[in-house]
Design a protein around this nucleic acid. Sequence first.
DNA 1: TATTGTTATACTCTATAACTATA
DNA 2: TATAGTTATAGAGTATAACAATA
Lengths: 162, 162
Amino acid sequence: MTDDAELSDLLTLRLGYLVKNAYLDLAALMARALEPYGVHPKELGVLSVIAADGAERSQNELASAVGMDRTTMVAVIDDLEGRGLVERHRSARDRRRNVVTLTEAGAVCLRDAERARTEAEEAYLAPLDAEAAQALSETLRILHRAHGAARSAPAHWPAPAG
Amino acid sequence: MTDDAELSDLLTLRLGYLVKNAYLDLAALMARALEPYGVHPKELGVLSVIAADGAERSQNELASAVGMDRTTMVAVIDDLEGRGLVERHRSARDRRRNVVTLTEAGAVCLRDAERARTEAEEAYLAPLDAEAAQALSETLRILHRAHGAARSAPAHWPAPAG
DNA sequence: TATTGTTATACTCTATAACTATA
DNA sequence: TATAGTTATAGAGTATAACAATA
């Protein structure tokens, strides 16, 4: 005589369901939080990587940094450029490379959207006490280093210095 | 002079990337672990829900329980039935409903695949100490209850008894 | 030869709309 | 009218293959 509530509970015992739901819940929350600024979470990651760096980054490098294919990056940059948030120009040193830079509007958008992202993360973690929230991030970083290293560090990129 | 390693680190500070990567890493690990048994993680969830319950569950109820659309469930049951793991039959009480039951082969597959799932979860959590692994599951359950309640408890299902 | 950006294409996953049979 | 199963269709999201320009 298992009722429906217990049937749902069955799946919350599975790590896979918990992690998948965490991803879907947070992704939906983030997409809603960024909507007023006209950017998708994926685009915000790209803008952040561009801004994080004084060096000129090509589309290919941006794609590797955020973990998407370079063919997918083309459309992302197309959109961002069409909305005036980034600019493309050919690298002088290597004319195959498209160097992507932030416009002023892009910098403003990034700043505002980043604040919205931070607030959304805080809202997502609000049900937890500070200790548990801190532990969650640290735990996920450990798991990322252990399991996701291959995907996050493309073979054609230079190795870390230290 | 930010180098590539620091560029990658930038994203590991974002909860969204950490959670997404956790999902992708675990999903890939799980899919590989279940491959020898010929089931996808999604199908294992369906088999588990069927087996968890003495009551007869319709396709619609199974779909709600695992969080997928009932139109998606049709193809899932088609596959499972085609491989002889489940059987469909019309409910006597309500001839609109397709009651789905496990075959013997389905029960065997479920048992073996469940063991593989458990092992895969343990492998995924191996980089953590027991305390952190326990805390992760508990934290994800809290977040699930807080944010995912609406999706996990379909409106047309009876409310929990207590 | 190899790499970058680009395009076209295909594939996966899932949801929506509409139909049927039942209630 | 409303619901369960089904089908056809469409929409994201992403990856693969091939091509031109450049190294």
